[in-house]
Simulated assay, not measured.
Amino acid sequence: MTIRAGLAALFTAATLVAAPASGQDYPDHPVEFIVPWSPGGGSDTLMRLIAGNIAPYLGVEMPIINMPGVGGTVGLREASRRDADGYTISQVHEGLLVAHETDITDQNWDTFDPIALMTASPQYLVVHPTEDYTDFDEFVEFAKAHPGEITMGVTLGGVPHLHAAMIEQAYGLQFQYVGYEGTGERVRALVGGNLDAAIGDISSSLQFVENGDLQFLAVGSPERMAATPDVPTFMELGSDLELNVTRGIVMPKGAPQEAKDKLEAALEALSKDATYIEQTNNAGAEVMFRGQEAYATYLGKLDDTVKSLSEVLAP
C-alpha cells in the first residue's frame, strides 16, 4: 500500500505540472496579439499602443504578430483556430461585419468572444460647401427633393459605404455612390469639387474644414467632439446612428471566463491611463471603453443594421 500510495502521489503531482494553467492563474505567460493588418496602418498603430502599455495592468507582455490579408480576415481566421485558453487575442472593427455580409468571409463578430471595445474614430458627413444647403437639415431637405443626385464618396463594399447607407436608411435618402480606395483619395476629390459629400474623419478632413474648403454637417459619435464642438451628432438630429470605426479586442470562442474577466479589467484600467489616452488621441482616435456585455450589444446591433443593408453593400 505504501508503494501504491507513493505512485499515486507522484502521478497526481505530474498531472498537476502537465495541466494547463487555470483561469485563476491567468495570465502566467505572455498573451499573443494577432493584429490582422499590416504594420504602420491605423489599426496596427492603435493596437501597438495597447500592447505597449498593458503590462502594468495585465502583469505580462503582449507581443504583436501582424497577419494582414483580405481585409483583415486572414489574421482573424488564424486567431479563430487558436486554443481558446486566453493566450491569443485579436482585433476587429466594423469591416468584419461588412466582409461577412458580402460573403468575403464566413467569420463574423460572434465567431469570437468580445472582450472590450477600446478606441473609436468618429466619422463625419463632410460636404463641399454649396448654396444648396448650409446645415444638416437643409442637406436632408435637398437630398429628398433630388433623390440620387448627391454624389457620395465611399469605399464600395467597405465601412464608409456602410455608414453612408445607414444615413440613407435613417433619413429616407438616396445617394449616387462613387467608389474610392481610401479616405484621403475621396477627401481630395471632395475638396476638388468632384463630389458633393463623403464620409470622413478628423485626421483626413479637419484641416480642409478649418480652411473653408469643406464643411462638417454631422458626426457619428454619441456626444459632440471636443475638436468640433459646433458640429451636431446624428443623435441630436433625430436618429440613433453611431458612425464610428471602432477597434476592439476579441478572444477565440470558449475562453475561460476568468481569463476574459481579467483581460477586460486590465483593458478597462488601461483605458483610464493618461499616457495611453494622450497617445491614442495623438494617433487620431478616441478612447471609448465598453466591456464584454456592452461591446457584444454594440456589435449585435450593428450586425442587424449591416444585414438590413446587405443588398446596398453587395459588390
Rank of each mutant, 00 (worst) to 15 (best):
K307E: 12
E78N: 13
F112P: 02
N282V: 07
D230W: 13
M166H: 04
T2K: 14
E94N: 07
P39V: 14
T151P: 00
Q207C: 03
K262D: 03
Q292C: 08
G248S: 03
V250Y: 05
G86V: 05
D135Q: 09
G148F: 06
H161C: 05
L173I: 14
Q257S: 13
G300Y: 12
E131Y: 13
E286Y: 14
A296S: 12
F33D: 01
L190Q: 01
A255L: 09
M225K: 06
A285G: 11
R290C: 02
L267S: 03
K262V: 06
Q107Y: 10
E268W: 11
A79E: 02
T246K: 01
S22Q: 13
T130C: 08
A120P: 00
Y298D: 05
P36A: 09
A120K: 07
G182Y: 14
S221I: 11
Q24T: 15
A13L: 11
L10T: 03
T151A: 11
T12A: 15
V31N: 06
A274G: 08
V154K: 01
T111Q: 02
L241K: 01
A143C: 09
A165I: 12
G75W: 02
Y180D: 01
V187D: 01
G172A: 04
L190H: 01
Y276R: 03
L16P: 00
A19K: 09
S43R: 03
P129D: 03
E223C: 13
L243D: 01
G71Q: 05
P20H: 07
L237D: 08
V191C: 02
P56Y: 01
A55G: 07
E181C: 03
P36D: 07
A227G: 01
L270M: 07
P30T: 12
L16N: 02
H29T: 06
T183W: 07
G72W: 06
Q215M: 13
L299A: 06
L10M: 08
I249Y: 08
D83G: 11
G254S: 11
M288V: 12
L76A: 07
V98E: 09
G238W: 14
A294S: 08
H93Q: 13
M1L: 15
S221T: 12
A9N: 06
T2E: 15
G200S: 09
Q123I: 08
A164M: 04
A269I: 08
S38M: 12
P252S: 08
